[in-house]
């Protein structure tokens, strides 16, 4: 019994990480209908940026966020301004194929720079710290921090979307680009800000990913898929939905792995496909109007 409680708890906590993968994806889809195939590779890029920052400056991973987050945001802004804005329009293919090309570039660029060796960020003593929740049920400090950060990130995005001028600009641009321009909004800048924000979240996710497990240049696509599955499970356009989606995905994987180690990923995918079959709009779709 407590064994299963432990399993489910681990799943919930890892779900926070998946929710962060999902939030960045969902954000840019919401603002500009762009699905970024390179999203997972950008998460891995953030992990490598964190690796360099921690190694060269001797910072611990959590402190390195102070540099990694702005660096990734800047990359996001530039990427959107210089490249991705050119792909937006009625045609589906250009954004899809350009971000697909970008994914290949990032993967192979990282391979060229860092080789295929597995890396990991060392967070020191905190990595082994655990709390006992109840008799036989333990949580690690790091997974707990990661989950709390994920909840904070999503709450923050929700606030930003509905309580700030930037969020208003995001929603207005998403509604009607032409009229948004009439309001003095430079939509190219608004889109670039959305991508910057998305990659800021990606940076946080990347650092936690790198602390939690080994990473190498090839693991990006799987992170994209996890994020995507969490988005669809939660329901398009809903920030809190992505958290629920991430948690469901995390728990499914944990339960699958408990049954048979080879079933970890499969169980997650099957949960996603099951939701798609019975409730394609997701569990918490945004009610429009």
């Amino acid at each position: 019994m407590t064994e299963w409680l432990n399993v489910i708890l681990q799943g919930v906590l890892i779900g926070g990480l998946y929710a962060m993968f999902a939030a960045g994806l969902s954000l840019i889809f919401g603002v500009m209908r762009l699905v970024n195939i390179a999203h997972g590779d950008l998460i891995v890029l953030a992990a490598y940026v964190a690796l360099m920052v921690t190694q060269t400056l001797g910072l611990d991973p959590l402190t390195s966020l102070l540099l990694v987050v702005p660096a990734m945001a800047l990359i996001g802004y530039a990427l959107q301004r210089l490249l991705l804005n050119r792909t937006l329009g009625d045609d589906l293919l250009p954004p899809l194929l350009v971000t697909f090309g970008l994914s290949i570039i990032i993967q192979n660029g990282l391979l060229e720079l860092f080789t295929a060796d597995s890396r990991k960020l060392q967070a020191g003593a905190i990595e082994v710290q655990t709390f006992q929740m109840m008799e036989g049920v333990w949580v690690g400090a790091l997974p707990l921090i990661q989950f709390i950060v994920a909840v904070a990130v999503i709450a923050g995005l929700q606030m930003l979307f509905y309580r700030t001028a930037l969020g208003r600009a995001f929603r207005a641009t998403s509604d009607d680009q032409a009229v948004a321009q009439l309001m003095g909004l430079d939509t190219r800048h608004v889109f670039a800000m959305a991508m910057a924000l998305s990659l800021a979240v990606v940076a946080i996710a990347g650092v936690f990913l790198a602390v939690r497990a080994n990473f190498d240049p090839s693991i990006g696509p799987a992170r994209l898929i996890f994020g995507f599955e969490a988005v669809i499970i939660g329901g398009l356009g809903s920030m809190w939905g992505t958290l629920a989606g991430g948690v469901i995905l995390g728990v499914s994987q944990a339960v699958g792995a408990q049954i048979d180690p080879g079933w970890q990923l499969l169980a997650g995918h099957l949960a996603f496909l099951a939701i798609l079959a019975v409730r394609p709009q997701g569990l918490f779709p945004k009610v429009s109007g």
């Binding site: 001028a165 208003r168 600009a169 929603r171 009229v179 948004a180 309001m183 003095g184 909004l185």
Partner: peptide
């Protein structure tokens, strides 16, 4: 803008 409230619509008019 359908996603915005009445007041948000006015506020965004005053964005610049």
């Amino acid at each position: 803008f359908p996603s915005l409230t009445v007041e948000e619509n006015l506020l965004i008019g005053g964005q610049s």
